[in-house]
Design a protein around this nucleic acid. Structure first.
Lengths: 254, 254
DNA sequence: GACAAATGAGTAAATGTTGATGATATCTTA
DNA sequence: TAAGATATCATCAACATTTACTCATTTGTC
């Protein structure tokens, strides 16, 4: 039965990831010619992909598969990781922390791996996913509507969820800070959430890389003096350093 | 096969962090030229990074990065996709649906891509992530505690969140069904959620593959007659078919 | 038994892969 | 900083695989 063999080829390939034509001929006891006819049908419906010398499986068959996360923001990865390392040093055993949306904050997760009894509350999908491999991290997701701009959850459900928890330390991100405009963000959807956290967390830390300093984005969600910690990867201009000193904000840089 | 060697190079490099070209030539018994071509493909898709004299794996620096999702449950992918296709045919434009945890239900997402104004409510992390590439899907996540067994959200927050929404169709999974024990599940954490959905959704569909029929798992969360639709990949034993007929349950198979 | 579909075998032209070679770029160290 | 060593890249010829054919034979169905 041809149809039978074709679906067997698909299963077989799914198990082995890639298979050579010779192997398929051998396994299914048919000529190369027939295997070729079979796989061109499979390739046409997208189940497998032809490669030179054999075939490979095309995951999520049937319909086209798309990448869930964009070819990720790989700019300044090392810098972001440095910032996140400093931020994670602020986390003590038994802490309940909030991790904001953004690409810097998620770098904290691996650095939290060997602390004890950490509870992470987050609306950041990346943060949840990054936490999966570390079973000692207790992760609580807020509810909310998926916002594809930052792959985070937004809406009133987020603050409603947050009201259930006492957050000791909130690690917030921002798309721009300035002495005059304060702490700003590009997405209005997240403004309410960030404001709530500034109001209701025992301590707040702001994580921004050097490209965000002296930048004003769309909406101001807080003042610089609202934060206990300011964490960045290079020493900011002296007027910022003075401001932090004057306002009792701890500045952390590598 | 070239494709084979390339994926082996990736695995090999992942183990050793960084490898010299000479070493790769030696291990894979091909010329430097070929290795170079292989690694430039790997570099293009971002798996590795070329350095002078060799390659290193691409990872967020500092600490080791782990795979967020297990080497995925690849068994019966085709069958699960078939089931999910049938399930998605039940979804009409403007529907509000719930997608349960489990590996069958998430296959529905790509099939929902070309429907209009669908709202998906879910506690299944995979479902949220799978929805990201399809902007026409409106996705609402319940809040809750990350449960690594199924990569879903659990706890009282889930049902609390669900109370906010009117769900028309709930697509539920199960780890085993039987005529005597009803619809059962292995994880006690999810029982409450599933019961809530049976009670509060206008219609409920049960998606199970052939391996789950005549299996009783730890906890019973509902009766077979609680469901409007039963969707599976092969015709179940006749006593089930009779039961579905008698109880006005629509049976869907390919 | 007749018919249609599927299979195996073979062929030439097109295309993909590989290792050798030499030109150029990059690193090292004196 | 210049020289020597090494790595990278581009090009080419040899070889392997694929494609698109044709055609005889086998298999399955009515």
């Amino acid at each position: 039965m041809k149809i039978n063999r074709i679906s067997e080829i698909e299963k077989y390939t799914r198990q082995l990831e890639h298979v050579s034509l010779d192997r398929l001929c051998d396994v299914f006891k048919v000529s190369k010619n027939t295997i070729r006819r079979d796989i061109s049908e499979l390739a046409k419906k997208g189940a497998i992909k032809k490669v030179y010398g054999g075939i490979t499986i095309n995951q999520t068959n049937g319909v086209e598969s798309r990448e869930p996360f964009e070819s990720r923001e790989i700019k300044y990865q090392a810098e972001k990781s440095q910032i996140a390392k400093l931020a994670s040093d602020l986390v003590d055993d038994d802490d309940v922390i909030f991790i904001d949306s953004g690409t810097t904050t998620i770098h904290m997760i691996p650095f939290l791996a060997n602390k004890q009894n950490i509870t992470i509350i987050t609306s950041n999908l990346h943060a949840i996913i990054a936490s999966i491999p570390y079973p000692n991290l207790n992760v609580i997701s807020t509810g909310g509507v998926l916002y594809r701009g930052t792959n985070s959850l937004t809406g009133t459900e987020v603050t409603t969820s947050l009201r259930n928890y006492n957050i000791e330390k909130a690690f917030l991100a921002s798309t721009g800070i300035s002495l005059t405009k304060g702490v700003t963000n590009i997405s209005p959807l997240e403004t309410e959430i960030k404001r709530y956290l500034i109001e209701n967390s025992t301590k707040t830390a702001l994580l921004v890389d050097h490209t965000k300093i002296n930048v004003a984005s769309l909406m101001t969600y807080g003042k610089l003096e609202d934060f206990s910690y300011f964490i960045t990867n290079t020493l900011p201009p002296s007027e910022y350093v003075d401001f932090f000193m004057a306002n009792n904000i701890t500045l952390l840089t590598p």
